[in-house]
Amino acid sequence: MKGIIQGILLALLLGLSSVALAQEVAPINVNTADAELLAELPGVGPSRAQAIIEEREANGNFENAEDLTRVSGIGPATVEAFRDQVDF
């Protein structure tokens, strides 16, 4: 019986680890991403995604996460929410 329980626990742990790995995604490059991809960032919906693109086209690429505060509606708290999910 103990062996069966250990086997079930091992299967559960392996299943959970594969789910965690599946959720790990590559960072989004805010200088090349389209609006649909940018909208996936926490706190960024379709309108802010479009604003990121417009800011990027008007004033050049973003060099770091703090540069995203140039976009209306994106403040330090929003940047902190997605800092580890973006690349430049």
Rank of each mutant, 00 (worst) to 15 (best):
M1S: 10
G75S: 07
V30M: 00
L10V: 14
L9W: 05
L16Q: 00
A77D: 13
L41G: 01
A51P: 11
S18I: 14
E54W: 05
L16M: 07
I4M: 11
F82W: 09
P27G: 14
E24W: 06
P27T: 05
A35E: 15
L37A: 08
A33F: 03
A39L: 01
E55F: 05
R48P: 02
F88N: 09
A65S: 15
A11V: 06
V86S: 00
Q23G: 12
I8P: 07
A11Q: 03
L12K: 07
G3I: 08
L38G: 02
I52W: 08
V71K: 06
A22H: 11
A49I: 02
L38E: 03
G43N: 01
I5E: 10
L12C: 15
L16D: 01
V19N: 04
G7Q: 03
V30G: 00
V79S: 06
L10D: 03
L21I: 14
I28H: 00
Q85R: 14
Q6T: 10
A11F: 07
D87P: 02
P27F: 12
A39F: 10
L38D: 01
E40R: 10
A26N: 07
G73L: 04
V79C: 05
L41K: 00
R70G: 10
A22P: 01
T32A: 02
A65C: 13
V30W: 00
G60D: 10
R70I: 10
F62D: 04
L21C: 15
V30R: 00
F82G: 04
G45Q: 12
E57A: 14
R56K: 10
L41W: 01
A11D: 06
A77W: 09
N59E: 06
E36M: 07
Q23P: 01
A77P: 02
A65D: 12
E40G: 14
G73I: 00
L10Y: 02
A35N: 08
L13R: 03
S18N: 13
I52Q: 03
P46Q: 12
V44W: 00
L10P: 01
E80R: 03
S47F: 08
L38S: 07
L37K: 11
E55N: 11
I4L: 14
P76M: 05
K2E: 06
L16E: 00
L21T: 14
V25A: 14
P42Y: 08
V44C: 01
P46K: 11
T78F: 04
R48V: 03
R83N: 09
L9C: 09
E36H: 11
V25R: 15
A77R: 14
N31I: 04
V79E: 02
G73A: 04
N61F: 04
I28M: 03
A35P: 15
V79F: 04
L16N: 04
S17P: 05
S47L: 11
I8A: 11
G73Q: 07
R83A: 15
A20E: 11
G73R: 04
F82N: 06
A81I: 06
A20L: 13
L14D: 08
D67H: 10
E36S: 15
A51I: 13
L14W: 07
G7S: 13
R48M: 05
T32V: 02
L14G: 12
Q6V: 08
